[in-house]
């Protein structure tokens, strides 16, 4: 084992760990908005770790250039896709999951004076319609 093999091992282990925890998180998180976190982690950091680790395994400049191209494509497209999915879900009216007992449609817990809505341009402002309890319901049955 040369030094580059050890480096590759470390990076691949990190990438595998992130991929596995991302899979567990996507499977176990309670609602759509919290599932975004493990999915984005797998998308960006996990693939970056694996691809950087593989960079130490080659001495061909063409292969290195292709690896850099894949990394840059994924770093451009994966967060964009995640953001687009989130925006589409918010605009259709999907609201974050809340623990029982929390105030209806208030999504900041620690700072009550910073209760601005996350997307101020959203047509369905959560604070403007905070009296309707149905607004906070998730669109669970919309797809099944």
């Amino acid at each position: 084992m040369e030094w580059n093999d050890y480096l590759t091992g470390v990076f691949l282990a990190l990438g595998s760990f992130l991929a596995l925890t991302g899979g567990v998180g996507i499977l176990r998180m309670p609602d759509f908005y919290s599932r975004l976190h493990p999915a984005g982690k797998t998308d960006s950091l996990g693939q970056l770790m694996v691809l950087i680790g593989l960079c130490f395994q080659t001495s061909d400049w063409l292969v290195l250039a292709k690896l850099g191209l894949i990394v840059s494509f994924l770093m451009l497209t994966a967060p964009t896709a995640t953001h687009a999915i989130t925006k589409a879900a918010w605009l259709e009216g999907l609201r974050p999951w809340q623990r029982p007992g929390d105030a209806e449609n208030v999504y900041t817990r620690k700072h009550p004076d910073k209760r601005a809505p996350y997307f101020s341009a959203a047509p369905k402002d959560p604070l403007a319609s905070s009296t309707s309890a149905e607004q906070g319901q998730q669109l669970e049955a919309s797809d099944e």
Binding site: G22, I26, F32, R35, L36, A39, T42, D43, A78, A81, T82, I85, A88, A89, E92, L94, Q138, L139, E140, A141, S142, D143, E144
Partner: peptide, 14 residues
């Protein structure tokens, strides 16, 4: 499993 279609889109992307 779903339950919403956004979960499915997110899963396909991941």
């Amino acid at each position: 499993k779903g339950p919403t279609s956004y979960d499915r889109i997110l899963s396909v992307n991941a």
